[in-house]
Write a protein that binds this DNA or RNA. Structure first.
Lengths: 245, 245
DNA sequence: TTTTGTATGATTGTATACAATAATGCATTT
DNA sequence: AAATGCATTATTGTATACAATCATACAAAA
């Protein structure tokens, strides 16, 4: 699993706070906490065997990431991803993945180029055999490698963020027959970059995202997301919680 | 001045931490702290009259924003914006402002449309009179209004972040004769949105960013940025500080 | 002179104590 | 029965105390 340390290359996982941060983040992304569930500092602290301080710091960071909402003197609440959010993210990613692929044409290193090729061929193999979890893992590695090869810390950071953000949804997507199509698109992107054809690379990477999103919609993979996450969030802000834990 | 509360609509400025967060952030953006300067918790706490706790929480958030880098057990250091960063941001913004303008064609409200028109006409007035600081303020308002009118919390959030990030640089830019050109582009964007022409709106908004960046380069406005910010940053990570404060 | 080791001080990491605020339950009133 | 007021409890906000880590200075050895 490589969906750790996508943030903060230095600080993390050597401090309690870093570990708490990643733990809560993963728990939210994996659905351990339901949308709008309240995260209590002492409860989390006890569960992880730490005091409130590192938990608080982690929560403050998660708020900035948009995964939770903190209401002063009230508490921290999980913010759900709405179907609209997913759509917006894929449209944004479409543009940015295109930019990334374009830049990669110029900036990619030989090692990274070989890594991309290897991932594509490996994915073919696992797609034939029907190893869907491996496929999801390889998809992550393909995109992460691409992000690193564009030679822009800003863009890399941004794309990794979004990639992680839709991780839960994305995994279900690749379990279907989209896996094979997706990898064919990966191959096309890889080849365009290998041929140093930035216009083509951008174009294909662009479409790759749009296709991924279309597939999700067609297969009803967004049904599970509350379409009203934002409205409910505002209600909480004004009114008050109603769960009794 | 409207470059406050661009983040965290709820939490802020009612808590000590929120105020500390914004204060340090502004101080960094305004150049009070030099690149790579160490931010000490007690010193900041004393200056603002608070204890270490809210300062620490604010620093953790600033790290996630990328404005500072925290090295475990060592300290928090200001991360400079390199010329490369600015270039990347403008390329990214070019794509995203285009997307925003496109979406605004469909989603903008009547009030927002009128606000845009008013800003454009007001800018004309101040450009004639040579009121450059007002022009910068109106530029901010134009873009902020546009961000809000695209009806996407994700995109709005992202663009406001970047807008704020290059705020310091941008202000110097508009002081030159670019101000008038910039406003003409604003007018073209506004009219395309008014005419519900998404393709044109996206195209113009796209170019608007590229032109802004070109102008910055031509006028040597990026010279003041250390082109090696990233490398120096990594040196700090590995080696150690050398300032004696 | 350079290097290495150690002691000291400075700074951050974590835990805990206390204060402030909000939620809850219950009694009282209407 | 519904609404209001008050007391109690729970939870967060902030400050402080202590532990752990790192930087620095200086002395001793090569």
């Amino acid at each position: 699993m490589d969906n750790k340390d996508l943030k903060q290359e230095v600080t993390d996982k050597y401090s309690l706070r870093g570990r708490v941060f990643h733990r809560i983040r993963e728990d939210i992304l994996n659905g351990k906490y339901a949308d709008h569930e309240e995260l209590k500092e002492v409860a989390i602290g006890e569960e992880l065997g730490v005091s409130r301080t590192p938990v608080r710091e982690a929560l403050r960071q998660l708020e900035l990431e948009g995964l939770i909402q903190i209401i002063p003197n009230r508490g921290a609440y999980v913010v759900g991803i709405s179907a609209d959010d997913v759509r917006d993210i894929y449209m944004i990613r479409s543009k940015l993945e295109g930019l990334c692929a374009r830049w990669a044409c110029e900036k990619i290193s030989n090692e990274q180029m070989e890594a991309l090729e290897e991932i594509v061929y490996l994915s073919d193999f696992h797609a034939e055999k029907g190893h869907m979890d491996q496929l999801a893992e390889l998809d992550s590695r393909f995109h992460t490698t691409l992000y690193e090869s564009c030679n822009s810390k800003m863009l890399e950071h941004l794309l990794k963020d979004y990639h992680q953000y839709v991780w839960r949804v994305r995994q279900r997507t690749l379990a279907g027959k989209r896996g094979k199509d997706s990898n064919n698109e990966h191959r096309a992107i890889m080849e365009a970059i290998r041929d140093k054809n930035p216009d083509l690379a951008e174009e294909i990477a662009n479409r790759h995202m749009l296709n991924a999103y279309d597939n999700m919609v067609k297969n009803g993979l967004l049904e599970m997301l509350s379409k009203e996450a934002d409205k409910e969030k505002e209600q909480i802000t004004k009114k008050g919680k109603k769960s009794k834990n």
